[in-house]
Amino acid sequence: MSAILDIRDLRKSFGETEVVRGISLQLERGQCYGLLGPNGAGKTTTLRLCLGLTDPDGGTIRLAGLPVPQAAREARMRLGVVPQIDNLDPDFTVTENLLVYGRYFGLRDATIRDRIPGLLEFAGLSHKSDARIPTLSGGMKRRLSLARALVNDPDIVFLDEPTTGLDPQARHLIWERLKQLVAQGKTILLTTHFMDEAERLCDRLSIMDQGRIVASGTPRELIAAHIEPDVIEVFGDGASDWGETVGRALSQRFERTGETVFCYSTNVQPLLASLDQRRELRVLHRAANLEDVFLKLTGRDLRD
């Protein structure tokens, strides 16, 4: 089956800076695909390119079988978008937001009104149907943004950092809903910099950095391919001294940020034995996760 989103060697520059530098990726129908990367990696620009809101300097995009940006308007008929910053209509009620947005797709009022109860139920907003937007919590606004993105019954949904700024309860609810969408056969492309989000939701993901895809695969594949299976984090007074004198030598890979050291290894017994002698240090022994891969590939430096 052909990919619902097919990006080949996509390039985009702003002035002298090339922010998307030769990205290729293919999304199969029914997949949840994650685009991970630090701030400024080019994730949002990639989404804008796929929407046809900015023209690429090179490469091709096919969305729902249509070339973008040439047929972007038609392609957007099959697409839903949850933007990074909520742009719900503050002058309208919850229901009116869905109605007005549905009209942009050329849907008849009767069709939209038939869909609204289902959308509100999906978003857990049935009791808020006549509420005005400024009275909604941050989580409710996100859920309404998600419902709005579904008003045209799209094949594919783009979500740009869907849970940034939400509390854990609200975040888990969004995750549940996204899983439901995938179960219904929708395709999802989401950007995030929350690794647990990507690990839970995504069938496949790509890690972007400085406009390039630096790694792609399932979360498990990425962890297996790029990182040692065990991590020992050591922190507290003296942790960096212990790290430099002992930890570094006993690890396959060793990293330090401030007073915390990270020892990556396939055999952690010697490390644990050494730490047994140093009871004043605080130790966390855990399995390697996607965040470790992410930090290894994109570095620990701040990206501001």
């Binding site: 308007r73 038609e74 050329g106």
Partner: peptide
């Protein structure tokens, strides 16, 4: 301010 145009641009309008 409200970014209403951004929302509309994600729909099939230019």
């Amino acid at each position: 301010i409200q970014r209403t145009w951004d929302a509309i641009l994600n729909a099939p309008l230019n």
